[in-house]
């Protein structure tokens, strides 16, 4: 295959990887900053995708209303999770409860909507940079939007009062309380925001790909790989890691063959965990056993 083919594949992988990076950064925020092992992550992305499909393709709501609805539902779930599951600090309980929630969501969706793949059936126009290199316009748009949202989130965390309060609470809860910050409200806000990010990623993914109830599990595994290679808590790292994880499977597929994509990807994941579990992009080595 020529160079143009490889450039095409890499560009395409980067664009998809941008969206992976977006939802992985929300996960890394939850896991790293909020100390919450959320195993229902993929299920909620899948739920957002289904909601996108139903609001737009079946119920024909206007797009703005659909987006608002999805964000609201996700935020509500976030608050619900915080009130019930997050109350216990016990890590094992969190995993179990969120896995249980994930099973409920997945089976609820397959019961009400059946497992038939749903697709918004949008035919995407492609931008031809070169007769043999093309990128999808929708994917480009989603990539740009993902980067913009992350930038906005970063600015929120660094420039606004609430954002700084969140960072303070994450760093040291007791001292932050001494300074008069209502820690539990701030954590609620942080959690709901990261759940809204889940909603946005779901909408973007629905526009790009079809969905089945088990798609969430696949996305969750990808989120794990991205977060571990970036280092938990490192949001920008997660974005770039996402791009990396978008490109690597495509290259494996192109060079070795599609058959090797999954096994090699997961093996790479395990190797990263063994060799550099604190992340490829972070220098902080103390994250691992302190969890």
């Amino acid at each position: 295959m020529g160079v143009t083919a490889y450039i095409s594949i890499i560009l395409n992988g980067m664009l998809t990887g941008g969206v992976y990076g977006l939802f992985s950064s929300a996960f890394t925020f939850q896991a790293g900053a909020l100390n919450f092992a959320n195993f229902s992550y993929g299920a909620f992305i899948m739920l957002s995708m289904y909601l996108t499909y139903y609001t737009i393709a079946v119920w024909h709501l206007p797009v703005a209303a659909a987006v608002a609805l999805i964000l609201l539902i996700n935020a509500a779930f976030g608050i619900l999770l915080r009130k019930t599951v997050l109350k216990t600090g016990n890590f094992g309980t969190q995993i179990l409860c969120t896995m249980g929630i994930s099973m409920i969501v997945i089976n609820g969706v397959s019961f009400f909507c059946s497992s038939y793949p749903r697709d918004l059936a949008i035919l995407e126009k492609r931008l031809f940079l070169h007769p043999e290199i093309s990128i999808g316009l929708i994917q480009l748009g989603c990539f740009g939007l993902a980067a913009a949202i992350l930038l906005g989130f970063h600015l929120f965390l660094t420039k606004t009062w609430q954002g700084i309060a969140i960072r303070a609470v994450v760093q040291n809860r007791e001292i932050a309380a001494v300074f008069g910050i209502n820690t539990s409200h701030i954590l609620d806000l942080a959690f709901s925001l990261s759940c809204c990010l889940i909603g946005v990623s779901g909408i973007m993914l629905m526009v790009m790909f079809p969905v089945t109830p088990v798609f969430g599990d696949y996305l969750q595994n990808l989120a794990f790989i991205v977060c571990i290679s970036a280092g938990l808590g490192n949001m920008w790292g997660a974005f770039f890691s996402g791009i990396f994880i978008g490109v690597v499977p495509s290259l494996i597929m192109a060079i070795l063959g599609a058959r090797f994509q999954d096994p090699l990807l997961y093996l790479l994941f395990v190797l990263i965990l063994l060799i550099r579990p604190y992340g490829i992009f972070t220098k902080n080595k103390n994250v691992v056993r302190a969890f």
């Binding site: 890590f91 595994n221 790989i225 090797f260 096994p263 965990l273 056993r289």
Partner: peptide, 28 residues
């Protein structure tokens, strides 16, 4: 061996990664 190097969430993710590897091998 992994459990002596990693703990908590990292160990759980390692387990998931290993089991996903085995699953994908069995399918492919």
């Amino acid at each position: 061996g992994i459990s002596s190097k990693l703990s908590g969430l990292y160990f759980t993710m390692a387990l998931i990664g290993l089991s996903a590897t085995i699953y994908s091998l069995s399918v492919q």
